[in-house]
Amino acid sequence: MTKSAVAQRVDEAWIRALPKAEVHIHLEGSLGLADLLGLAKAAGAQLPFPADRLFGGATAGAGDGAETGLSSFLRFLDWGCGLVATPEQASSLAYRFAARQTASGIRYTDAIVNPGHWGQWTDRVPALFAAFADGFDEARVDGLAEVNTCVSLSRGQSASSARELVEQITESRPPRVVALSIDGDEHRSGPVSHRFAEAFSLARDRGLRRTVHAGESSGPEGVRDALDHLHAERIDHGIRAVEDPALVGRLRDQQIPLGVCPRSNVALGLYPSWEVHPFRHLRQAGVAVTLNTDDPAVLGTSLETDWSVSSQIWGLDRSELRDLARTSVTASFADDDLTNRLLAEIDAIDVSEASENG
Rank of each mutant, 00 (worst) to 15 (best):
Q101I: 01
A103E: 09
G105C: 08
G105D: 12
D110M: 07
D110K: 05
I112K: 06
I112Y: 09
V113L: 08
N114K: 13
N114A: 14
N114P: 05
P115Q: 10
P115D: 10
G116S: 07
H117G: 03
H117Q: 07
W118S: 08
W118F: 15
W121A: 07
T122K: 15
T122L: 15
D123S: 13
R124P: 01
R124S: 14
V125N: 01
V125K: 02
P126I: 06
L128I: 10
L128T: 07
F129V: 11
D134C: 12
G135D: 00
F136V: 10
D137Y: 04
E138L: 13
E138Q: 15
E138T: 15
R140V: 15
V141M: 07
V141Q: 13
L144F: 00
V147D: 08
V147A: 03
T149I: 01
C150E: 10
C150S: 08
L153F: 11
R155Y: 15
R155H: 13
G156W: 06
G156M: 04
Q157P: 03
S158Q: 15
S158M: 14
A159H: 00
S160M: 08
S161N: 06
S161R: 10
A162K: 03
S172E: 09
P174C: 01
P175W: 13
P175I: 12
A179D: 03
L180W: 11
L180F: 12
S181A: 09
S181Q: 03
I182T: 14
D183H: 07
G184Y: 04
D185P: 10
H187I: 06
G190I: 10
V192T: 12
S193R: 01
R195M: 05
R195I: 05
R195Y: 02
R195L: 09
F196P: 00
A197Y: 05
A199K: 02
F200D: 01
S201C: 00
L202K: 05
A203H: 05
A203P: 07
R204N: 09
D205Q: 06
R206W: 08
R206M: 03
L208P: 02
R209V: 00
R210G: 02
R210C: 11
T211F: 00
H213N: 11
A214H: 04
S217C: 04
S218R: 04
S218M: 10
G219A: 08
G219T: 05
P220I: 07
E221L: 03
E221D: 15
D225T: 00
A226C: 05
L227F: 03
H231K: 13
A232V: 09
E233S: 02
R234F: 11
R234D: 03
I235A: 12
D236H: 00
I239E: 15
I239N: 14
V242D: 09
P245W: 03
